[in-house]
Amino acid sequence: MRLENIVLQARDPHATGRFWSAALGLVDLEPGSPEDYEGRLWVDDELWLDLCVEPATEPPPLGWRLHLDLRGGEQQAEVVQRLTGLGGTRVDIGQGEVPWVVLADPDGNAFCVMEERAAYSDTGPIAALPLDSVDPQRDAELYAALTGWVPAPGVGPVTLRHPSLRGPLLELCPEPEPKARQNRTHLDVRPTPDGPDQRGLVELARSLGATLATDDWAHGHPWVVMRDLSGNEFCVLADAED
């Protein structure tokens, strides 16, 4: 199994996708639906993540439970300047005086450009994926089982990373408030030939406390929409081909 997709929602997926393609240096892909955008981030010759943007009808609400932290480091100011030149905007979400810079993509999805941190070595342009959690240790057990990622040094209370210790960190962070609505950003995991198939991966997730989403919009897809123990949506995709 593998973590395959970071999925965003936007009112204009193509315009938002063009921003993220330029921001992250993605290789544009043919999406599953003409309404969507999909691009691939190559971390190295063998490790990649796809960023997908799907349609939404409403602007993003406050309360980002999963967002992207981009690597800035010593070039933080230059990265911020480049991203604002691409259409990003500075936003105030109540962050106060912090060493990172909060921006929003053209649809209003907030993300951060981070300062220099030792934990961000070899991450590529996405330094981390902070995810709000009721119980970070408990939720980390679920995501480790579903992705094959392993505990690693990081900034959050519990951090997972690809076993190669390359690519972004998945940081499980204490939630500031309970989840109130469908997340604007979520993760997709994919079964692989060397592990459980889709049904087996769903059952594994359920054995670790995840639940099937019962909302009308969650049905009728080749993927299975689930929620972790903190209520965050994720999808189990169809079986990978050999």
Rank of each mutant, 00 (worst) to 15 (best):
L62A: 14
E115M: 08
R206K: 14
G231V: 10
E58D: 15
R181S: 13
S164V: 07
P61R: 04
D215S: 15
W64E: 12
R181Q: 12
A104Q: 06
V101D: 04
A77R: 13
G200C: 12
S230K: 04
V7I: 13
F19T: 01
D36Q: 10
D215E: 15
D139I: 15
D242V: 05
E54S: 05
P176I: 07
D197A: 12
A22K: 10
Y120K: 06
H14G: 08
A240I: 02
D45C: 00
G32Q: 06
L29S: 02
E241S: 12
G25C: 11
M114D: 06
V91N: 01
V27I: 11
Q75D: 15
V7A: 00
Q137S: 14
G195N: 04
R11W: 03
L51I: 14
D105S: 10
S207Q: 11
E97L: 11
L146Y: 08
L160C: 08
G209E: 05
G231I: 10
E97W: 10
G154T: 11
P191R: 04
A145H: 09
G195L: 03
P191N: 05
G156R: 01
G154V: 13
D45W: 05
A56K: 01
G96W: 06
P151C: 08
L47D: 06
E74W: 13
G88S: 06
D92V: 08
F111M: 04
L229D: 08
V43N: 01
Q182T: 12
Q76Y: 11
A238D: 13
A23H: 01
P31T: 12
H162E: 11
D12C: 07
L24T: 03
T57R: 09
L208W: 13
L68W: 01
E97M: 10
E241R: 14
G231Q: 05
L47M: 09
T192D: 11
G39T: 10
V158W: 00
A128Q: 04
T192P: 00
P196V: 02
R82N: 07
G220D: 06
P60Y: 02
